[in-house]
Design a protein around this nucleic acid. Structure first.
Lengths: 143, 143
DNA sequence: CTAATCTCTCTAGTCGCTAGAGGTTCAAGC
DNA sequence: GCTTGAACCTCTAGCGACTAGAGAGATTAG
């Protein structure tokens, strides 16, 4: 079908050229046929595949999850239990991260709010960092 | 003063041993004196410094920011404008991330909610990933 | 046909660690 | 004082998901 260079595929999918090549090296995108001169030639199915990946990345899925989800999507007569499980895990992870960031946001805001904008030795920002006891709540590791 | 081995410093500060050595290699923590046998010997000020770093890391500051904040904290007669600016930037960044993750959370939840738990070819999870047009809103890059 | 733009491979860098190998030093118990 | 086992040392490599750049070859519009 339609013969796409890697640059056209990039523009059609929104995935950058080096990233496409990277996906090929790690086996997330199959190696396409080459032109006589050795350049990669893609078709429309590759555009779809990359859009799938891009959307999944935007939702925070890791490349391993996306590999699994793509496998599922390629063989459609299976139960979607696995897909559900992967997405649920991801949702839980996102909620965990939001909670962590929310705690961090509160502390940063409080820190800035209490700062008298004077000299460093009375700066609440530095002070708070120096002494965790000044925090109202524990905040988990950010990630 | 009190002579701490790297292991004791680690337990006192909550920062892992290899991480302490890593901080030394990148110049975030000054290289301490050594014992006759060549082992690192720390003092209580190092415990404080590492706690400062650990707390900053928990708030999502990068190591470069922490270097700058530590410099400020070491010379206390300056205006805390710089510290404020760094913390404000961090707060903005955290808010940006929360907003992004919130959009992602909504879409993941909607995706899972609409899934009929049947076969993959009707799976809303896979379907949504394949077709960004099914999303209600744009979601920015996760990070 | 030429010139500009793509594309190729390869290596190395990003961030903030973490893991492991293979060897040395320290400190506690006897 | 000696033994033993834990802790310490350096060095290299790896993680995830790319990104950047060098230097060379391919393609395409005019």
């Amino acid at each position: 079908m339609s013969d796409l260079s890697i640059g056209k595929l990039s523009r059609a999918s929104g995935v950058k050229v080096p990233t496409i090549r990277y996906y090929e090296t790690i086996g997330l995108l199959a190696a396409p046929p080459r032109s006589e001169g050795g350049q990669r030639r893609y078709d429309k199915a590759d555009v779809e595949r990359l859009r799938f990946i891009r959307h999944g990345r935007a939702l925070g899925f890791g490349l391993d999850d996306l590999r699994a989800l793509q496998d599922l999507s390629d063989r459609p007569n299976q139960s979607c239990e696995r897909a559900d499980a992967i997405a649920s895990r991801q949702l839980a992870e996102v909620e965990r991260r939001i909670a962590g960031l929310e705690a961090v946001r509160v502390e940063l805001a409080r820190m800035l709010d209490h700062c008298a904008h004077g000299e460093v030795d009375q700066c609440r920002v530095i002070e708070t960092l120096s002494d965790h006891a000044l925090c109202e709540s524990d905040h988990p590791k950010i990630s």
